[in-house]
Design a protein around this nucleic acid. Structure first.
Lengths: 195, 195
DNA sequence: CGGGTTCTGTACCGCTTGGTCAAGAACCTG
DNA sequence: CAGGTTCTTGACCAAGCGGTACAGAACCCG
């Protein structure tokens, strides 16, 4: 019973790279060759250290939870409920817009993202979403001009808010949340409407 | 110059099936064999009628825009800005929770969804999101018990709202929206906070 | 009916995917 | 140094991917 050859890479460093690849390309979009290249190891080393692709993703998600999505835990420790909510949302913004990481949140991005050769389609979808938002913004601009919205209201910000809630609704529906609950979510969102 | 053999399938019906497959499995998760099977045609017929996979997806997205995402257009025609916002959000709920269609919105689902053999991973991600929401809900329950939240407030609804906004933020960040704009979105969302 | 045209079905292509085998190198212990 | 253990390397696998070639069937027009 001897020590054996020591591995030549740092497991945690390699895992961090795997997080980035999954975050950027998504689960299925991240090919093993993408992963091994970014992690600086070759295939059998990856399998020996992390199991298969799914197991690697599980570990990457755990590491993401510890290192990136800290606001989710932090929020629970906040003194007031409102502070918790704000911590959650501000944290989501910060994590999603880090300079040296892929934009967005791994939990959605792992699905939302696609492999390199589907760039055109991903961009088409983003354009589709932006077009919907732009229509809403223009409608809100008209409303402001007509006095239907308070003068201090920014139509662009308001459109982004409405679209963000709609997108959140879609995600939650995909996760199995029912229609009645989502309508209550809309009720709540609409209480944010500028008086 | 003659007519040639007529095609044996209805292009629009086949396209509707393609919409469903993309909606359910995502763009990359939808294999050509999934598409041809659902559409009831075989491969060369698909290529002759729709071009390649990307072109088929483009047409499917157009059809989805016309047939499913009607609330996006409808909203723009509403009499007031607030009605437009509400139409947008209620429509998102309805489309995302139709009984005979995949849950969620194609524009996100086309990325969020995965192929059949990645079910475990997709479910893991959904669980991850639900866990975060559950933590927030429990925090809000405590807050209500402590009088930090009004007695009439439903902690579960509030948690769903906060999480939905956070998810919307992630999507928008992935689509290139900057940090400052997203923080303004948070400001707006927080005005919905129960007094 | 014959010629031209377009669709359908099968079989196939090159390529990439996730995953593994077997040989050799590098280490620890005795 | 010898034996056992573990890592690294490169080649390899079956299966699935998106996409296509080709032959035959079904139609329209003259």
């Amino acid at each position: 019973m001897a020590g054996g050859r020591p591995r030549e890479f740092d497991v945690e460093v390699a895992l961090d790279q795997a997080v980035r690849v999954f975050w950027q390309r998504g689960y299925e979009g991240a090919a093993l060759s993408d992963l091994t290249e970014a992690m600086g190891i070759n295939r059998p080393s990856l399998y020996a250290a992390f199991g298969n692709k799914e197991s690697l993703f599980r570990k990457a998600l755990e590491r993401y939870t510890d290192r990136q999505a800290v606001h989710v835990r932090d929020a629970l420790g906040c003194p007031t409920a409102r502070a918790a909510a704000e911590r959650m949302l501000r944290g989501a913004v910060e994590v999603s817009t880090q300079a040296d990481c892929p934009a967005g949140c791994l939990s959605l991005q792992a699905g939302l993202a696609m492999s390199e050769d589907a760039v055109a389609t991903r961009e088409r979808l983003a354009d589709w979403r932006r077009t919907g938002e732009a229509g809403l913004r223009e409608r809100f601009e008209r409303a402001r001009d007509e006095g239907d919205l308070p003068a201090g209201t920014d139509p662009g910000d308001l459109a982004k808010f409405v679209v963000a809630v709609a997108q959140g609704i879609s995600v939650q529906a995909a996760d199995g949340v029912g229609r009645e609950q989502l309508h209550r979510l809309v009720d709540l969102a609409l209480t944010a409407w500028p008086a």
